[in-house]
Design a binder for these strands. Structure first.
Lengths: 166, 166, 166, 166
DNA sequence: TTTT
DNA sequence: TTTT
């Protein structure tokens, strides 16, 4: 990436269960509806609330993990970037969409029906857009240990370089 | 604010001069068009670019300062939050808008026609939505010193508390 | 503030109960010990963990709220800046300290003894360094509603300006 | 990474040229001294400045690029995490160090001797800790195009997946 | 030690 | 010293 920074950090609760789809290539594309609420006082001193509903997209392994562990009501930390898209419908009307493309996810404690999920586990995930196995059912089995993954974490490489003073 | 985090950090260049308007109450509402570009390789190994154009809104004093110092091409750091709005047009068609509401701004060196602006000065600004004087011309005069302001910086207060070990 | 960005975002768990002190001027100064853990694979493919312990300082009302609601084990979101300090001890030896000075705090669900605290409530706080009342006992009484506060939130002002399209 | 968020975002100027060293394994380890300055008013209404000097470490390719393009005075955007270290000197005295470990870097316009560097180009870099070629001189040749790299960008992989709607 |  |  280059020329610019486009970074979004969200902490919010899911308004619904994640929606997982797969591309023809077998890559998971998961969509979350995430609420963040802010409060301020109006000029009469009354508290006013406003909730933003973010549409968050998670690709590849990150999307699979989200589909596996997140549930409606769950609180989650998302780091990603904003993407604006425009589509022209069959009726010729242009439609605009704004997505948050996640490249990191961290489940937070408690909240909603999914609260405590994963046996109370909490984990951070950074999943990549790498091609998922063709069979989506092969999503990662629940692990006892809090799973960890992140976008652009291409397993191999020499990053496990003991030279780096971790 | 409460229940959630909704934070955006952008570093980009202005596609146009800032557009400054004033509310009936005399508050500045400035709109920036800010580009952030990312690069990736497609499956054929070719570099692909994608540019997002963010619509950034700055209110009050922060908006005045932006209107005063920013120019097309200028590089700027913005911190704020995402806001989604929906309007129904006269034709009954719903239109969606996504804005980045700035609560901090920092001019960065160089870039475009405005490059070096402010006599080469660079400054961070945190402006508030506080009501501006009715006469918009009363925007802060250019200072030799890099001006500083930020949203929610309500001048007075006891924040200049020497107890705080700065 | 000016010329630069110095921003820290942490999500971690408290290793101990908050430690609250008061300045002569009556301002709360609360210190948290906050753990963040990262995991990586070493070159032998074994998972390695590393935990950073951050010393987080919260001043004024924000410090009072932290002292009131946070407990050992609690998960919390902190936004602030890094501050490096050097002191010379009575023995003439220089000692270095690094603090995270919080300007926003958000309690997250679950975790530790304090888990669920506040009647299960969750809240975001932005507290200021404004001078606290001389009597520290006057910390905000627990509210049923998730309290909200933030640094530089100087209550009054005109920010509750209905002109701003919240 | 897992269980926690430890994120730092800095925009500052280099106080000196980068210092590049190499591990026995041939990996670049570059150190920057980065200044961020904040301003506030003391209780007498006088402006007070305070500068933090951050010690930023960049490993692998990211370190090579930093050593190649950054210069004293240059303004730079850094994203990374905080790492606290303790060493015991030969005299038995414990010494503490705090580093910012970069995982993304973005050169910003203007500033100091290096100002405009790279033929006026500006680029974002995300370099990895991947093992560099044994011969450090083989650092990437200056490119006309703003180079791009980031930590954990393990070149190959399937990330160039045209399925992902970029 | 930067920058303004 | 936390958490999983």
């Amino acid at each position: 990436m280059a020329r610019g920074v486009n970074k979004v950090i969200l902490v919010g609760n899911l308004g619904n269960d994640p929606e997982v789809k797969y591309t023809q290539g077998g890559m998971a594309v998961t969509t979350l509806s995430l609420a963040t609420t802010s409060v301020r006082k109006d000029r009469d001193g009354n508290q006013q609330e406003r909730t933003e509903w973010h549409r968050v997209k998670l690709f590849g392994k990150l999307g699979e993990i989200a589909g596996e562990y997140l549930k409606k009501g769950r609180q989650v930390y998302i780091e990603g970037s904003i993407r604006y898209d425009k589509f022209t419908g069959a009726d010729g009307v242009e439609k605009y969409f704004t997505d948050i493309v996640a490249d990191e996810m961290q489940m937070l404690g408690g909240g909603g029906e999914g609260g405590g999920g994963m046996g109370g586990g909490r984990g951070e995930f950074r999943g990549g857009g790498e091609r998922a196995p063709r069979a989506p059912q092969s999503a990662p089995a629940p692990r006892r240990e809090a799973p960890a993954a992140r976008n652009n974490d291409f397993g191999g490489g020499d990053f496990a370089d003991d030279d780096i003073p971790f």
